[in-house]
Amino acid sequence: MSLSRRTFIKGVIAGGAVASSSAYLFRGGGSLLGQTSAPGSVERLITLVVNGQQRRVDALRQETLAMTLRYKLGLTGTKLGCDRAECGACTVLIDDVPHYACSVLTHSVRGRQVRTIEGLASPTGELHPIQRAVVDEQGFQCAFCLPGFVMAATGFLKTNPNPTREELAHGISGNLCRCQDYDKILTALMRGAEYMRGA
């Protein structure tokens, strides 16, 4: 069978979201004592801009961005560690700024640019300089924390493209590595900063 189990499951999840969305269209703000559109009430079917693409999703009001990315859009590169803003595994960029996707409501990012680890490489598959540096320096062990670290570093380097090792360490201090591979991670990301300046 050419279709992997994982791809198949992703397809089912995405299909399910589309099929069921129409049922919710007429329900927005429904519990508001008959008033369907109080100022500020939200629709469940919304458009997100993820990795430069417009994606229509049916998002629960209480849904976090990490859940939408992983379980509705199939973007499982964004990891969930703690789900409590305490580890950094879920870090994505929102308008170029690193955020914990486990601690952002999907409805709060309408109209904003979301970038995940899947959106770093060029459309032709050429790796981002930071990704190349991670490969060159072999900076991670199990690499569960990798997407979070790479996104945090990408965001930080936009504000400080030429950091000292110490500054970069501070910039990515909101990410934990369970394998305790910090020194090599930092070396790889410093190399990434260098590649980016050269790019």
């Binding site: 703000g29 519990s31 508001l32 100022p39 500020g40 009430s41 939200v42 976090t64 859940m67 789900d83």
Partner: peptide, 23 residues
């Protein structure tokens, strides 16, 4: 630690202090 989605709530995203306080 519970990792399921949060229990349901209504969500409002007003654009003024007055609307926020009315809600």
């Amino acid at each position: 630690v519970i990792r399921d989605p949060m229990p349901a709530f209504e969500l409002f995203q007003p654009t003024s202090v007055a609307d926020a306080q009315a809600l």
